[in-house]
């Protein structure tokens, strides 16, 4: 039997890698991918809790997280396309329209 804490530790490590990608990369697409990575790591911990507590709620919550992740990816990429038409770069340190 695999202990619950192993799943949670795996989820925590994946989340931290996602945080690193989010903070360190310059490419906006990879920042979006890092967000997806973090959402997925949280999903793993939710499913693990659901299994070990013998409850269905964790799995249902994962269902909603996937819904929100899909919506977030669609909107985020649409914003990216709209910005790229205006100013063709996807490096986050060069996107500084609000600086005035």
């Amino acid at each position: 039997m695999v202990p619950l804490s192993w799943y949670i530790v795996l989820s925590a490590v994946m989340f931290s890698i996602g945080v690193f990608g989010f903070l360190a990369r310059r490419n906006l697409l990879i920042i979006f991918i890092s967000i997806e990575l973090m959402l997925n790591s949280v999903n793993i911990s939710l499913v693990a809790f659901s299994h070990y507590l013998q409850s269905m709620r964790g799995q249902i919550l994962v269902f909603f997280v996937i819904t929100v992740a899909a919506a977030e990816a669609a909107i985020g990429l649409a914003i990216l396309i709209a910005y790229y038409k205006h100013n063709p770069t996807i490096k986050v340190d060069e996107i500084n329209l609000l600086k005035g």
Partner: peptide
């Protein structure tokens, strides 16, 4: 999964 996550970012 840890190695793949590192490769992804």
């Amino acid at each position: 999964m840890t190695v793949l996550s590192l490769l992804v970012v």
